[in-house]
Design a protein around this nucleic acid. Structure first.
Lengths: 214, 214
DNA sequence: TTTGTATCGGAATGATTGTTCCAAAATAAA
DNA sequence: TTTATTTTGGAACAATCATTCCGATACAAA
């Protein structure tokens, strides 16, 4: 039995135009709650995070959670997209706002090193974690990850190509290959830094990887 | 109330020496069953694999599973160690059995590419998957992963150092740095190949990464 | 105020989780 | 054959899972 909100229909006729009664407003900031969900899924992954965990840490009611975000899977996807958007913005900002290609990549990896060093819970990268946890599996997530890989490698490659065009990088090099290689290295970096967060090791491996630009 | 096998004690005295009654033997090959467990955990991860999954796919009884391997966590650790042992043997064999350093690394990555292309279920690397799923978390797993990282990077580095000593690789290079960088790239490779298994992309990024040896 | 409805806390649901237990069947040695 | 003990299938268990539901409360608009 479904309870249709029939009263609305009558009101529309009664007043002769669309009228809406706005009841109690949301008691929480949707964006803020979503960010807490990001934190939790990021740290524990999809399967190890229970709805009880979320209810306990998000600070909103169980029913409100379902009303606002749908079920667990829907909430995860929203949280994941939120992370991906803000994270790809950051990457673009760090990478393209610099004087030279190499400095841009150094800024990007320095940022990642800082994030690693400051993150005592060793969450790593939400995108990498999701890739290894949810593939094989959810196809809609897989297509997002596929797009993410293409965009990321493409962004890397275009920055390098710009460097080649400016004569900053040797013209014999292939921007696409190097871009994909560095993007892949970035993924490995996010895995390894979960195990060993020693900044000296991280810095020296980054320097070695970036030597392909010389 | 615990049922102690007291009869043994009496028999020992009766016959004057150690005597053992061997009952029904195991109906399954322990190693074979463990390999099936590896397959399942590898594909789905720890949390997404249920004991019911295991009972259904391992072909042995639920009680036998608990008797032989202990609980879920113990079984996972045994499966993980099994994978790690055989996998590190393979890496060592591919890497060190070659005429030159670069050919060794090429063999290693060619093997990984083949594994990727042939694996329609996109399992990736069990070690990488476990790193991203179970850190932060289980500390005993973390120490295994830490050891694995050290051994892997060390193996890479020593092969490179041998190349330097033989004059095959430029003496100005740092074997440890390059070893760690290539090991990290290898991890990233295992992540990215879950998303895009295109062998041409994989080959070109490997060639670019291995150019640090030139 | 009155009214309508969303939020809220928490109970309830049914499925699934990991694990234990038991009686019956099986089998290697005595 | 007898004996001892494991394997086996399946029932049973308590805990947790995601999700739904409900009565009470809160609040914006009328």
């Amino acid at each position: 039995m479904e309870a249709l909100p029939k009263y609305r229909f009558f009101r529309y006729i009664w007043f002769g135009k669309e009228t809406k009664i706005m009841p109690r407003t949301k008691q929480f900031d949707e964006k803020e709650v979503l960010n807490k969900a990001v934190e939790l899924f990021w740290k524990k992954g999809f399967h190890a995070t229970s709805m009880q965990d979320l209810v306990s840490h998000l600070g909103i009611n169980r029913a409100s959670l379902y009303d606002t975000f749908g079920g667990k899977e829907e909430l995860f996807k929203k949280a994941f997209q939120e992370y991906r958007n803000s994270s790809s913005d950051t990457v673009k900002r760090l990478l393209t706002g610099e004087s030279s290609v190499k400095v841009g990549f150094e800024k990007l990896f320095d940022f990642a090193i800082q994030e690693t060093v400051n993150d005592e819970s060793r969450k790593g990268c939400f995108v990498v974690n999701t890739t290894t946890e949810l593939i094989p599996g959810d196809e809609s997530i897989q297509s997002i990850l596929c797009e993410n890989l293409e965009n990321g490698a493409e962004m890397f490659a275009s920055v390098i190509q710009d460097g080649i065009d400016r004569g900053e990088i040797d013209g014999s090099k292939n921007a696409k290959d190097i871009g994909l290689m560095l993007f892949t290295f970035y993924n490995g970096f996010r895995v390894v830094s979960k195990i060993d967060a020693n900044p000296e090791n991280l810095q020296s491996m980054v320097a070695t990887a970036l030597s392909v630009l010389d």
